[in-house]
Simulated scan of single mutants.
Amino acid sequence: MDHTRQTAYSDPGRYAGLLDAVPTDIAGLTDVVRNLLIHYRGGEVEFTPDRLEEVNHRWVDEILACDQQRNAVPLTTPREPVDRVAGCCRDFTLLAVAMLRHQGIPARSRIGFASYFTPGFHHDHVIVEYFDRGRWNQVDPQIGPAEHWGFDVHDIPAGRFRSAAEVWLAFRAGEIDGDLYGVAPDLPIRGGWFIRDYVFLQLAHLRGDELLLWDGFGAMADDLSMDLGPTDELAALLVAADAGDRSADTKLADLYRIDPDLHPGRLIEVRSPTGTPPYRIDLGTRRKLPGLSD
């Protein structure tokens, strides 16, 4: 897959010209991302329900439209926290990926778990990977380097972030406690089923479908009652592809194309964290539809 090309999700559309002025260095670029977005659970702003709905912007052109309707200034012009678009780690990453691709740099989003937010717990997280100097570099665009994380947020060292596929294989091998992997220590959204669902999200993002973290499709489920062998095989292929196995990458591409359980269809089930009732979205028309499919 050509990771220099925009996807339907990362394409800035009519706002592409705004990206021309974004800095070309990774530190400057992620500064711009944090200038545009604010985490909806970060505590800096108490959002009204309509503002919270901004976290459901799934396309970069929607994020930029929201920003420009509120600010109507270049992306590098400082915004007050209250004027930034509410989002989550996936949005920080997708916007950074869009900016990098706009500059012709191979970039992709990576789904997994980070160990650096809460000691002893591994939060679900999405980071940027961009290709430079012969390797994929991992960057966390949500957090700033001045926050003293103990490592370079523009080049995350091994072990601080693990892909969903790596975590799933470790879980299946009995090497980790699945209950220490999830949304937050004070929330029940965690465990083996959650890790398994993120394996499918990891594959979707890798193949250019940079879905929301609360989207549901195909083989995703909220339990582990099914045959887990296929998930083990999928995770092993993802890990092998990350290690440079081109045959594994080719097999993943083929499976993603032909297996309806592995890729989103036209309709996506959405269970937003904003408290709105579950709904469906038509990915072709971008229309919101009531209720969930059977």
Results as ranks from 00 to 15, higher is better:
His3Glu: 08
Arg14Met: 07
Gly17Thr: 07
Val22Phe: 14
Gly28Pro: 14
Asp31Lys: 04
Val33Arg: 05
Leu36Trp: 02
Leu36Cys: 15
Phe47Pro: 12
Glu54Thr: 02
Cys66Pro: 01
Asn71Ser: 07
Val73Ala: 02
Leu75Glu: 01
Thr76Ala: 03
Val85Asn: 03
Phe92Thr: 06
Val97Ala: 14
Met99Ile: 12
Met99Leu: 12
Gln103Lys: 14
Gly104Ala: 04
Ile105His: 04
Arg108Met: 06
Arg110Ile: 09
Phe113Ile: 09
Phe117Trp: 05
Pro119Tyr: 04
Val128Ser: 01
Phe131Lys: 00
Arg133His: 15
Trp149Pro: 13
Asp152Ile: 09
His154Asp: 12
Arg160Met: 13
Leu169Asn: 08
Ala170Asn: 07
Gly174Tyr: 01
Asp177Gln: 05
Ile195Trp: 00
Tyr198Ala: 15
Ala204Glu: 03
Asp209Gly: 15
Leu212Gln: 09
Ala221Cys: 09
Leu224Met: 14
Asp232Met: 05
Asp232Ala: 08
Leu237Asp: 01
Leu238Asn: 11
Ala240Val: 10
Ala241Trp: 02
Asp245Met: 04
Ala248Asp: 05
Asp249Ile: 07
Asp259Thr: 09
Pro264Asn: 12
Pro264Phe: 02
Gly265Ile: 01
Arg271Thr: 14
Asp282Tyr: 10
Gly284His: 15
Asp294Lys: 04
